[in-house]
Design a binder for these strands. Structure first.
Lengths: 149, 149
DNA sequence: CCTTGACCTTCCCACGATGGGAAGCCCCAC
DNA sequence: GTGGGGCTTCCCATCGTGGGAAGGTCAAGG
């Protein structure tokens, strides 16, 4: 029980910046931290554990909203693993969708670049394509889960 | 020369929303549009062409800043195609980097999900991994070009 | 001629996750 | 008791996009 640290210590110990720790508290992802008499936030081992959980989840690309769900499941020892799996697979599908989008862009652009001489002459199939815009704009797909980070 | 339309018509004709057309003008990507006596913006064929160029570039994932560069090259009939190609290839590299990041997340998460029974029992390797966070947080890579859209 | 409705204008607000920085308090070591 | 580093709150910026309010404009139809 030695272990109550202030926000800077928690940041160093978990890899979550002090700014973000306050933000997570403010937005309700984390419960209000205990405070010293003078108002400093204090974090015990369990809080640090939670923060590491959040950090790892962010690294896996979960939105803060998703993490709220994960945290709730984590803390409910009676959860069904099916719920967790569903959340995870949903996120995987989302990642794959975003990957496919980016790959389509990269492929198109790479092939355009491939046909561009890339010398001092002005002729450029890349610009020609952008100007022609032969794909008649289907309403640009709005991503349900913007990448955000 | 029949063709001067107001902003709504330009939006329909190019797939760029009226909001965004105003935004592009405000931020200097596009020059101020002509106005009617009563202040309505007017767009001729050439303006529509430019808007389609912008739209297509956004579809290929270019940032608005990048598009400013592309537009300048497009409008400079003496540009060297090498410049355009460099811009495009740089963007492709960026896309590939983002793809790799997302793929790493997807792989990790998919393999975790694969080991999760996904039934009514509470045991869940996904949560276990998030809680363990065995990867000792290397400072989270800040993307030079955030995905943004 | 006047109303109605569709369009346009500007202005402000919001998102999501993050960082920057200012002004002011707190605490410890010297 | 003083200096420096950590903490607090508060505001601002990012990027591209949409929402909406308040008010002007315009054409068609009664």
């Amino acid at each position: 029980m030695s272990g109550a640290v202030t926000i800077g210590g928690a940041a160093k110990a978990t890899g979550v910046s002090a700014k973000m720790i306050r933000y997570y508290e403010e937005t309700g992802l984390l419960p209000p931290a205990d405070r010293t008499a003078s108002g400093y936030r204090l974090y015990g081992e369990e809080d640090l554990h939670t923060l590491r959980f959040v950090r790892r989840s962010r690294d896996l690309g979960f939105s803060v909203e998703d993490i709220a769900g994960l945290l709730a499941l984590w803390q409910d020892r009676r959860r069904a693993s099916a719920q967790v799996k569903a959340l995870a697979l949903h996120h995987v599908a989302d990642l794959r969708r975003r990957i496919a989008e980016l790959e389509a862009m990269a492929r198109t652009l790479a092939s355009l670049a491939d046909h561009c001489s890339g010398d001092s002459r002005p002729d450029c199939p890349i610009l020609d394509d952008l100007a022609a815009g032969h794909a008649p704009f289907p309403p640009r797909p709005r991503r349900s889960k913007p990448p955000s980070r």
